[in-house]
């Protein structure tokens, strides 16, 4: 029992960034835009946060610098996500193509920036990332909790949340009652950019000491799967993120158990993806996705 308790901080550390990103992705899809650029946006946020934190640490900012870095990373990722917003909402582009473009672009931009700033294909190591509290939890766990609660409250308890969900289900109906679909969808995409960037920062400041091209390593895609697996609701997405995060944490945790240790770590790496795939098949046939997600809204068309 004690052993299981002692694993909780590790699991939460790994789950938090995935959960934060997934909530952003969920909000984006509920507003009617699919964002497969989550992976790239996380990378942007992580690279920015790692670089900022390195310089702020040099300047003696300490933990305050880590928080500021998180914020800057999130803001830069938000700016980056406007590209997707313009393409998907204003130009009615294919959202998968524009998301793919952002993912490819972020691969280049992050390492290019590191080459310019640090003359290496990674950012320079910072000494101390975010510190855990008395019970071993990182602040990122609390951030994730706050994000889930706020997202749930806004989506289901405020007029804005209802408008947002309406735009994802039936934008024409929303438009006819005076909701500005364009503004709502922009809000959805930019929120997902902000949260993905924040999550990228959370990831790099708790789990590692620098940004490399392997830092994000598919977490954004896991978050994307968590949105589908969690059936586009805050509670479901939280559950899915925990499942996937726990599966990822297993490779870390397995070293504590003799019988698990003998299994190759790749088995645990495969788990979250295999679970998602099986879940997608199991839930097939029933429609949980927002009905107009991924479809551009053309005001002129009937």
């Amino acid at each position: 029992m004690n052993m299981i308790l002692s694993m909780i901080p590790t699991i939460l550390m790994i789950v938090s960034p995935i959960l934060i990103t997934a909530i952003g992705g969920m909000i984006c899809e509920r507003s009617g835009v699919v964002n497969i650029a989550l992976e790239g946006l996380m990378a942007i946020g992580a690279c920015t946060a790692a670089s900022c934190h390195y310089f702020l640490e040099l300047a003696g900012w300490g933990q305050a610098g880590a928080w500021l870095s998180l914020l800057i990373g999130a803001i830069v990722a938000t700016l980056f996500s406007t590209i997707h917003a313009v393409a998907a909402i204003d130009l009615k582009a294919d959202q998968t193509i524009s998301g793919t473009g952002l993912n490819l672009l972020s691969d280049g931009v992050t390492i290019f920036a590191a080459q310019i700033l640090f003359r290496a294909d990674r950012t320079k190591e910072f000494r101390v990332g975010m510190l855990s509290d008395r019970i071993g939890l990182y602040p990122t766990a609390y951030i994730a909790l706050a994000v889930v609660l706020v997202a749930w409250y806004v989506l289901y308890k405020t007029p804005f949340g209802m408008h947002l969900r309406a735009c994802g289900e039936h934008p024409a109906a929303a438009d006819s009652v005076g909701i500005n679909v364009r503004v709502i969808r922009y809000a959805g995409v930019l929120t997902s950019g902000f949260l993905a960037g924040l999550a990228g920062g959370c990831c790099v400041l708790t789990q590692t000491i620098q940004y490399t091209s392997n830092t994000i390593n598919g977490r954004g895609f896991i978050a994307l799967a968590a949105v589908a697996f969690g059936r586009w609701t805050p509670l479901g997405v939280t559950g899915a993120a925990f499942l996937f995060g726990a599966a990822q944490a297993m490779s870390v945790i397995a070293t504590n158990f003799a019988f698990l240790k003998r299994l190759p770590s790749e088995i645990f790496n495969i788990l979250p993806y295999a679970v998602t795939l099986i879940a997608l098949i199991a839930f097939s046939g029933r429609e949980f996705a927002p009905r107009s997600s991924g479809k551009p809204y053309d005001k002129g068309a009937s």
Binding site: I83, V86, A87, L91, K92, A93, D94, I97, S98, T100, G101, L102, N103, L104, L105, S106, D107, G108, V109, I111, F112, Q115, I116, D121
Partner: peptide, 20 residues
């Protein structure tokens, strides 16, 4: 920095999306 080629490739795909 060789990553400029990745940036150009990414930009090309973004512009392809924008050409909608």
């Amino acid at each position: 920095p060789k990553e400029i080629t990745y940036i150009i490739q990414g930009l090309i795909v973004v512009f392809i999306a924008l050409r909608a």
